[in-house]
Amino acid sequence: MQISADIRDFLVENFLYGRDDGALRDDVSLLESGLVDSTGVLELVSFVEEKYGITVKDSELVPDNFDSIDKLAGFILKKTREAAA
């Protein structure tokens, strides 16, 4: 899925600084793996907002939406569909 690939590219570039060691699976917890910290989540939010033209509400800023490539891809899909509807 293109969204997942885009997210992965962003994470590799911005949080692994280009060095993809293969540990970043689509279901890995970004927090527990130490890849993203409390301020890193905000980077992720601005990436999503800019790239997909959606607005993330404070109430949506939860691990269920942001804590893995899978979850984030699902969230983006849901938000873009909502916007289109």
């Binding site: 409390s38 989540v41 905000l42 800023l61 939860v62 691990p63």
Partner: peptide, 14 residues
Amino acid sequence: ARSPVRSARYAEIF
């Protein structure tokens, strides 16, 4: 200004 810690679930993990 804007902190994910405002989400209790995130705060809990952090």
